[in-house]
């Protein structure tokens, strides 16, 4: 049983008839994800690959059971869609859109925290357990990246995920579950909040963190390890070591301000907690071999 989404997880897709929604929902089904129903207001009665579409989450849940919701709606509609899923009692939600307003992201995170829900995203590719299920958009057919295995991955960046995960696989390992927490300033779920799930997951032996400059998520991981919340081996790659202060490098959350959020500070905190850090993608191979022993 993979954490977050497994072959048994019944997934609702909100925004299933949109261009990206339909394309990636089809891939989710092809890969083996159990898509229970779709939701697009005004499109009830349509279907995608045999999956029925409903006007609303409430209508869909009258006919189907769902354990999780995948949200493919544009950024301005994400808050409404998340609240609709929460209203339907769904407590595992993935939202991929980039450009969710900051105040909406705060409301989403606040609402999720108060009802114990996990909202992953936005500004992410989503969640995948290779060979089992995915909620999001991953080129799972590229085997030198998405090979099943025992390394859990958490990431703030989609493009860098492919780069680093390819190193994990080329070192002879594979991926148990990959969680893209996303590149926004206020992600629904933070790195450290996923650690208890990885700790409890029998399929995960070690965790790789793909972080970057800005924010405090990497420092929180170091703290969780120091506090004994997470005891499995951890390796990290953090991008932006040579980034100048005050320049935003792409992601909304990736900026050093007032001397805070530097990669040096993150690396120091992680190494003090016993995390191995790779200063370039290829070194991730050495970290994993050293941590997990000698596969070729």
């Amino acid at each position: 049983m993979s954490l977050f989404a497994d072959t048994e997880t019944r997934v609702l897709v909100q925004g299933i008839t949109g261009k990206e929604g339909a394309f990636w929902s089809t891939h989710m089904i092809t890969m083996g994800t159990r898509v229970a129903a779709g939701v697009t207001p005004g499109k009830e009665g349509q279907n995608l690959e045999g999956v029925r579409v409903y006007h609303s989450v409430r209508n869909a849940l009258k006919e189907h059971e769902a354990d999780a919701s995948m949200i493919f709606v544009p950024p301005r509609f994400v808050k409404d869609a998340v609240f609709e899923a929460l209203d339907g009692g769904i407590r595992k939600i993935v939202t991929v859109a980039e450009g969710i307003p900051l105040h909406d992201a705060l409301e989403i995170r606040s609402a999720a925290r108060s009802c114990g829900a996990q909202v992953i995203g936005g500004n992410t590719s989503g969640v995948i357990s290779p060979g089992k299920a995915m909620m999001g958009m991953f080129p799972y057919w590229i085997k030198r990246v998405y090979t099943p295995g025992t390394v859990g991955i958490m990431t703030r960046s989609g493009s860098l995920t492919n780069e680093i995960t390819a190193m994990v696989v080329s070192a002879g390992f594979g991926v148990s579950t990959l969680i893209g927490v996303g590149g926004d300033t206020v992600p629904g779920t933070r790195f450290a909040e996923m650690l208890p799930s990885f700790e409890a997951d029998p399929e995960t032996e070690a965790v790789v963190i793909i972080g970057e400059l800005g924010g405090t998520m990497e420092e929180e991981v170091a703290e969780a390890i120091q506090d004994g919340i997470f005891t499995k081996p951890v390796a990290a790659f953090i991008g932006g070591r040579t980034a100048p202060e005050g320049k935003r490098m792409g992601h909304a959350g990736a900026i050093i301000t007032g001397g805070k959020g530097s990669v040096q500070g993150k690396v120091k905190a992680l190494e003090a907690a016993g995390v191995m850090t790779a200063d370039r993608p290829s070194r991730m191979k050495d970290c994993l071999r050293e941590m997990l022993g000698g596969t070729p």
């Binding site: 990431t155 703030r156 960046s157 989609g158 493009s159 860098l160 995920t161 492919n162 780069e163 590149g183 793909i210 970057e212 400059l213 790659f237 991008g239 932006g240 070591r241 040579t242 980034a243 490098m249 792409g250 992601h251 990736a254 200063d279 370039r280 993608p281």
Partner: peptide, 17 residues
């Protein structure tokens, strides 16, 4: 001239290294 904020930042570092 790269794609993806994370990867571009990583390449930025690699150039300097």
């Amino acid at each position: 001239m790269c794609a993806g904020a994370g990867l571009t930042t990583a390449v930025f570092d690699l150039v300097h290294y």
